[in-house]
Every structure is written in C-alpha cells, then in structure tokens.
C-alpha cells in the first residue's frame, strides 16, 4: 500500500439526466482492481446520486444506485459529501443509501489538495 496513490473521483452531476454519474461509478469499480487509495466526493448535484429510494421503472432506465452499496466490497470506503451542497438541496445524511462523511467546502478543498490524481465527472 505504501506506493499507492491517492485518487479522488469528483462527482458533480445528478444521476439519469446525464451519463456522468454512471460513467464515474463504472470507472471507480474498474479502477478498484488496482488497489489505490480511492476517495469519492459528491459536490453540487452529485449529492443526488446517493439519494435513497430511486425508482426508475417509470423512465425505463437502469437504477444503478444499489451499486453504491457494493463499493464496500470493492474496498472503496471513503465517501465524502459536501455539506453546503447537501443543505442547498434539502437533504440530510439520513437521505443517503450509504454511510458518508459530511465535509464543509473548506475541508473538501483541503482534501482535494492531498490527492495525487483527481478525476472529474
């Protein structure tokens, strides 16, 4: 693990309206095979990706939200949500389908500075 790099995936888009959220999740699952130090952060509309209770039958699209609960099996355990983004959307920690750490915008910026690689979706 000592030569593992710190990877951050920055998620800023809501699910379904665009393909970004799903693409990010797939890249995360694939890159998990490389045993790096991975963090997922959810900013802006990205926080909606983790909303509980998604029901996609009506839009005939695959509901990929259950896969966030499998991230633990892939050893991806660092999930961060931006507090300001969450609050601007009327969401609380209880709305999320996985355990997350809520960080302020300032803390998020500091975490970003620590990374070796940042991938934006």
């Amino acid at each position: 693990m000592s030569d593992a790099k710190k990877f951050m995936f920055v998620n800023r888009k809501a699910p379904y309206g665009t393909i970004y959220a799903l693409e990010s999740l797939e890249v995360v699952l694939i890159s998990a095979a490389f045993d790096q130090d991975v963090s997922l952060v959810f900013l802006d509309d990205g926080v909606y990706q983790l909303k509980k209770g998604q029901q996609t039958k009506g839009i005939e699209t695959k509901n990929f939200s259950p896969a966030y609960r499998a991230l633990e099996d892939y050893d991806v355990e660092k999930l961060y949500v931006e507090k300001e983004a969450m609050e601007a959307r009327g969401l609380t920690e209880e709305d999320f389908l996985v355990d997350v750490t809520v960080l302020s915008r300032a803390e998020m910026g500091a975490l970003m500075d620590e990374q070796d690689v940042v991938l934006s979706f």
């Binding site: 809501a14 379904y16 909606y48 909303k51 509980k52 998604q54 029901q55 009506g58 839009i59």
Partner: peptide, 8 residues
C-alpha cells in the same frame, strides 16, 4: 416518473 426515478 422523473421525480420518482430520483428518489424524491
């Protein structure tokens, strides 16, 4: 259907 898909 779009609101339900998003869990809201």
């Amino acid at each position: 259907p779009d609101l339900e898909a998003r869990g809201l």
